[in-house]
Amino acid sequence: MRVTLPLLALGALLLSTGCSGAEEDAAPPPATPAQDGPAEHVFAPGEQITADLTMYDGDDGRRTPFFSGYRPTIEFRHGGLSGECGVRLPVELREFPPGETHTVVLECGTEVVVPADDRGFALVEDGVERGTGEVVLTGEG
């Protein structure tokens, strides 16, 4: 009986730790492919939207630079959504001259839905397209 108790104790220990005396005959579950991130990103009203913006110059664009706080109409390609959005320039950029491209922050007064595969928009001023851009989606997944 002395031999039986240690064997029972050893069996209980092995079972409680998930070990068994038999070899594992079951293969691990197959890996599932990771998602490439969300199909779209929803920005709440006032939420900061990082975007790469290119302003046109010459006859199609602005003739003067703009500063932080500029509030043009932004027309998103997806779903025909448009609205007035504030443009905030990076600290190191005093003004945004026509003909240049910079990363800016948009703050729109309405909810904005941006599909991962169609992030483009037009910047419109007085009914004329003055620039174009693309939302930068960070931290996807």
Rank of each mutant, 00 (worst) to 15 (best):
A12P: 00
E24G: 03
L8C: 06
A27D: 12
L15R: 12
D117V: 10
V128H: 07
P45H: 07
D59R: 12
A51S: 02
R88W: 06
G69A: 14
T17M: 03
G79W: 01
T110E: 15
I74A: 09
L7E: 09
E107Y: 10
A22T: 15
R77E: 07
P72I: 15
T32Y: 04
T17L: 11
G18A: 04
P30H: 06
V104F: 06
G127R: 05
L81H: 05
V3G: 01
G58I: 09
P28V: 08
L15F: 03
E47N: 04
L89G: 02
F66M: 12
E75S: 13
G141Y: 09
F76C: 02
T138M: 07
V113A: 15
L106R: 02
T138E: 15
A39S: 14
V42H: 07
G99K: 08
D118A: 03
E129C: 06
R63L: 12
L93A: 09
G37M: 05
V112F: 04
A51V: 11
T32F: 06
R119K: 09
F76A: 01
G131S: 03
G79S: 01
R88H: 10
P33A: 15
G141A: 13
P115I: 01
L93G: 02
A27M: 06
V105S: 12
F67A: 14
G133A: 05
R130T: 05
Y56K: 10
E23A: 03
M55F: 14
L93N: 02
V135D: 00
E111N: 09
L53A: 03
A51I: 11
S20V: 11
D60Q: 09
E125L: 10
R62G: 00
V128D: 04
D25Y: 07
P30Y: 11
E107Q: 14
G37Q: 09
G18D: 08
A39Q: 09
A12V: 02
